[in-house]
Design a binder for these strands. Structure first.
Length: 729
DNA sequence: TAAGTGTGCGTTTTT
DNA sequence: CGCACACTTA
C-alpha cells in the first residue's frame, strides 16, 4: 500500500513554517505512550518527505467506496424514474408551430424556444430542468414579468429562492423589464425568510408570540453549552462538541430521522452518547420554546405545522399564493417540498426549476429526488428541458460534461454551446501549498492584464482552504472579497451587540442575556446563572444583592443600559447610541485591538439605521448576514468592481466569472476527507466539483500542491476527479 | 468561583 | 486554529 501521508514539510514554505512543539519533553506525560504512538510521532518527524509531485495517472491510490444495499436500491429506483421521465419528455415534445399571442411573441424575441415555453406555461404544474449556465434565472425573470404583463396580480405570486442574493437579483431584473410598481408587490425570498415574515405577520391567527428571536448555529451551540450540564455526561468517547451536537440535531430534523440514526450516519464516533444526545435534544427543544427562540429548522417546520393544523391559515395562504415558483428545487429538503406542495395544493400553479447535477446540499437534508419525482407527484405536469449553455466556451463545457459522465446517476443533460472555442482548461502543479498560492496568484496577475478583477474568482472546497491564497494576495496588494467562511455576524463584538438588540426584541432570550453577562469582569457561568434566575423570577429586588457584590458596578451599568434601551418610542438609532455608549468602553477593557472592531460597529450602526423595528433588524441580520468581506469588513458594491472573489464553491452557486481557479485538488481536500468512504457523499463532491468548474466562462485553472498541511500530516494524492478528466487538461 | 494555562483532539459545505 | 476540559491560582 502506498504511504498515505508524507511527513511534515520542513523547508521552503514561506507562509507557514511548521514549528515543532516540544511539549512532550517539557510536561511530564501521565500515561505512558504506546509503541505505536511513539512510532507514529517518529515517522511524522524524521522519515524524509517525498518531494515529487504525484501524478494522477495511476489510479491505484484511489479506493472506491462500496455502495451499500440502500444506495444501490436508491440508484436503481432513480434510474427507473429517470427513464420514465425521459420517455415522457420525448412524448410531450410538442411541434413548435403553436400560435403565439402578441404578448408571447414579444417574449419569443427575448428567449430561446425552451425558455419561452417555460415562461409562458403559467397554469398547472411545470418542471423545468435547466443545466448550468442555461439561463435559468433569465427564464424565471421573464416568466414573472410575463405573468405580470398578462394581468396576474403580483400579490398572488410567490417566488422561492435559495439565497437572498438570488431573490434580490430576480426582483431587480423584473423591475428593469417591466417597471417597479408591479414587480415590488411580488413576494420573493428564501424559504426561511418567507416563513419568518409570515409567522410574525400572522401571529394573532397562529397564536404565537411575534417577538421570537432567531438562533443561528453558534447561538444554538450556546444553548447546548447552557443546558448540557443539566444531564450527566460521562466521558465515554471523543469529546462532545457543542457545534457538532447542533449539526446532528439539525440534520436529524432535516432528514426526519431519529437523533440516533443521524448520529450513526454523520458522527458515528458519538454513538456511545446516543442516549445523552436524545436527552439533550429534548432539553434543547424545550429550551427554545420556553425562551421564545427559533432556529432555522423551526422556522420551516413551524410554518409547515401551522399550514397543516390551521385550516383558516392554510386556505388564506393558498388563496394568496396562487402562482408559485421555486428556484434550485434540487436543493430543497423534505419539509420545504411539503410546504410547497401544501401551498400549491389548491391552485396547482406550481413551477419548479433545478438541475439535479447541481445538488450540493445533501448535508442540509436536500434530496435531489425531489426534482426527479416531481412529475410523479404532479401527474399532469409539463416537462421542459433547457440545455443550451450560454455561459461557457466549448472546451469548458466538454470538461464539465465529462465530470457529469463519471457520476453514477443523473438526468443527463447534453449541454451545448454556440460560443467559439477558447483555451483548454489548465492544470497547475505546485510543490507546496505556499507554492500553489504563489503560482495561482502569478496567473491572476497575468489575467489582470486583460480582464477586470471582478471577472476572476478562486473557488475552494472549505473555508480554510483560502488562507494561503489570501496571504499571497495581501502580500501583493491585490484586493479581494471573501464569500463564505467566517461571516460578519460571527465576529465576537457583532454577536455581542446583536445580543443586546435581541434582549430588547425578546426579553426571554436568555442566550443573549447570558452572553452579555459573561462579558462582565468577575461574572462567570455560575454567577451569570444566578443573576438570570433573579431576572426570570420577575422580581427586580432579587437583583439587588448582586449590585452590592464586588463587581456589582459593571452589572449595574449593564442593567441600566438595558432598561434605557428598552424604553418605548426609541428609534434604532437611539438604541445604537445607548448600546454603544455602554458596550464600547467595556470592549476596550477586555480587548486590545479595538480599532478594527469599532469599524465593524460603525457598519452595524449604518445597517441598523435602515430599520424601523428591532425585530425585523435582528431577524434580517440573522437570516441575511452581510458576508461580503474585505480585510474583514463588508465592502460596498463599488469596491467589488475592483476586487477578485474568493469563495467556497457552495457560496458560488448560481454565479459566473470569466476566469475561475479551483485550487487544492487533493484527495482528502476536494473531495473532502469525510466523503471518501461514502458512496453518496463522494457523488455529491463530484457534483460540487462540477458546480465549481461550470462557473467559468472563458478560462479555467485547476491546481494542486504536492503536499498540504493537514493536522500535522499532509496528503499528497491528486484528486480523483482530476484523474477522471485527465485527457482534457 | 473566576480566570489563566496547558493539552489533546479533529478540522466541510449554509439558511 | 479553535474548542472542551483539567488543573492551577487568587
Amino acid at each position: 500500500m502506498p504511504k498515505k501521508y508524507t511527513p511534515i514539510d520542513e523547508d521552503g514554505n514561506d507562509i507557514e513554517p511548521p514549528i515543532k512543539k516540544k511539549k512532550s519533553a517539557k510536561s511530564p506525560q501521565k500515561k505512558p505512550e504506546s509503541i505505536d504512538d511513539i512510532l507514529k510521532r517518529f515517522s511524522n518527524t524524521f522519515i524524509p518527505q517525498e518531494e515529487s509531485i504525484r501524478e494522477y495517472s495511476n489510479d491505484s491510490h484511489y479506493t472506491q467506496p462500496i455502495q451499500t444495499d440502500d444506495e444501490k436500491e436508491r440508484i436503481s429506483a432513480l434510474k427507473k424514474i429517470i427513464t420514465k421521465l425521459e420517455r415522457r419528455y420525448l412524448n410531450s415534445k410538442k411541434e413548435d408551430n403553436q400560435k403565439l399571442s402578441t404578448l408571447e411573441k414579444k417574449y419569443a424575441k427575448l428567449l430561446n424556444p425552451a425558455q419561452l415555453q417555460a415562461a409562458i406555461t403559467v397554469d398547472g404544474p411545470l418542471l423545468v430542468v435547466a443545466g448550468a449556465g442555461s439561463g435559468k434565472t433569465r427564464t424565471l425573470v421573464h416568466r414573472a414579468a410575463y405573468m405580470l404583463e398578462r394581468g396576474i396580480n403580483a400579490k398572488n405570486i410567490l417566488l422561492l429562492t435559495f439565497t437572498r442574493r438570488a431573490s434580490k437579483e430576480i426582483q431587480l431584473r423584473v423591475n428593469q423589464l417591466i417597471g417597479s410598481e408591479k414587480a415590488d408587490a411580488l413576494t420573493a425570498g428564501t424559504f426561511h425568510g418567507i416563513a419568518n415574515a409570515i409567522l410574525r405577520r400572522q401571529h394573532t391567527l397562529l397564536d404565537i408570540s411575534p417577538s421570537f428571536t432567531i438562533a443561528d448555529k453558534p447561538d444554538s451551540a450556546d444553548i447546548i453549552r447552557l443546558i448540557r450540564h443539566r444531564i450527566k455526561i460521562e466521558k465515554k468517547g471523543p469529546i462532545l462538541k457543542n457545534s457538532k451536537i447542533v449539526d446532528i440535531f439539525s440534520r436529524s430534523r432535516n432528514l426526519e430521522i431519529s437523533v440516533e440514526k443521524t448520529t450513526e450516519r454523520i458522527q458515528p464516533e458519538y454513538l456511545v452518547y446516543a442516549e445523552e444526545l436524545q436527552q439533550l435534544f429534548t432539553l434543547f427543544t424545550e429550551y427554545k420554546s420556553e425562551h421564545n427562540i427559533m432556529d432555522y429548522d423551526d422556522l420551516l417546520s413551524e410554518f409547515q405545522r401551522h399550514l397543516e393544523e390551521n385550516r383558516l391559515f392554510c386556505s388564506q395562504m393558498q388563496k394568496q399564493f396562487q402562482y408559485i415558483m421555486v428556484d434550485e428545487f434540487q436543493d430543497t429538503n423534505i419539509i420545504q417540498k411539503r410546504i410547497v406542495n401544501t401551498l400549491a395544493a389548491k391552485h396547482k400553479n406550481i413551477m419548479v426549476v433545478g438541475d439535479d447535477a447541481q445538488s450540493i446540499y445533501a448535508f442540509r437534508g436536500a434530496v435531489f429526488e425531489n426534482i426527479l419525482t416531481f412529475p410523479e407527484q404532479w401527474k399532469e405536469c409539463t416537462l421542459i428541458k433547457i440545455e443550451q449553455n450560454y455561459r461557457s466556451q466549448p472546451a469548458i463545457i466538454e470538461l464539465t460534461n465529462t465530470i457529469l459522465n463519471a457520476a453514477s446517476i443523473g438526468y443527463h443533460k447534453k449541454l451545448f454551446s454556440d460560443k467559439k472555442i477558447g483555451d483548454s482548461p489548465k492544470l497547475i502543479k505546485a510543490s507546496s501549498a505556499g507554492d500553489e498560492a504563489s503560482r495561482v496568484v502569478n496567473m491572476i496577475e497575468k489575467e489582470l492584464e486583460t480582464i477586470k478583477p471582478k471577472d476572476i474568482a478562486v473557488l475552494y472546497r472549505s473555508g480554510y482552504h483560502s488562507t494561503h491564497i489570501q496571504t499571497e494576495l495581501l502580500r501583493r496588494a491585490i484586493p479581494f472579497v471573501v464569500y463564505g467562511g467566517i461571516t460578519f455576524t460571527e465576529r465576537r463584538h457583532i454577536k455581542d451587540v446583536i445580543s443586546f438588540f435581541k434582549i430588547v426584541a425578546n426579553k426571554r432570550d436568555i442566550v443573549a442575556w447570558n452572553r452579555l453577562l459573561m462579558l462582565l469582569p468577575g461574572i462567570g457561568p455560575v454567577t451569570a446563572r444566578k443573576i438570570l434566575n433573579a431576572i426570570q423570577s420577575g422580581n427586580g429586588e432579587a437583583l439587588r444583592p448582586f449590585f452590592a457584590a464586588k463587581q456589582g458596578d459593571y452589572l449595574l451599568a449593564f442593567i441600566e443600559a438595558v432598561t434605557t434601551a428598552t424604553r418605548p418610542g426609541l428609534s434604532l438609532k437611539d438604541m445604537c447610541e445607548i448600546i454603544f455608549a455602554y458596550y464600547i468602553p467595556l470592549l476596550s477593557e477586555i480587548e486590545t485591538d479595538v480599532s478594527d472592531r469599532l469599524k465593524d460597529l460603525e457598519i452595524l450602526r449604518e445597517i441598523s439605521a435602515k430599520y424601523r423595528s428591532v425585530n425585523s433588524f435582528v431577524s434580517d441580520f440573522t437570516l441575511d448576514a452581510p458576508q461580503k468581506m474585505r480585510n474583514n469588513s463588508p465592502v460596498s458594491d463599488r469596491q467589488i468592481e475592483e476586487t477578485i472573489t474568493l469563495s467556497t464553491v457552495h457560496s458560488a452557486k448560481g454565479l459566473e466569472w470569466h476566469t475561475v481557479f479551483v485550487p487544492h485538488l487533493l484527495d482528502g481536500m476536494f473531495p473532502s476527507n469525510r466523503a471518501l468512504k461514502n458512496f453518496s457523499n463522494l457523488e455529491e463532491e463530484r457534483r460540487l466539483f462540477y458546480v465549481a468548474c461550470s462557473r467559468a466562462k472563458e478560462r479555467l485553472f485547476l491546481s494542486y500542491p504536492a503536499t498540504h498541511f493537514f493536522g500535522g500530516r499532509a496528503s499528497g494524492i491528486p484528486s480523483r476527479f482530476l484523474h477522471e478528466i485527465d485527457s482534457l487538461l
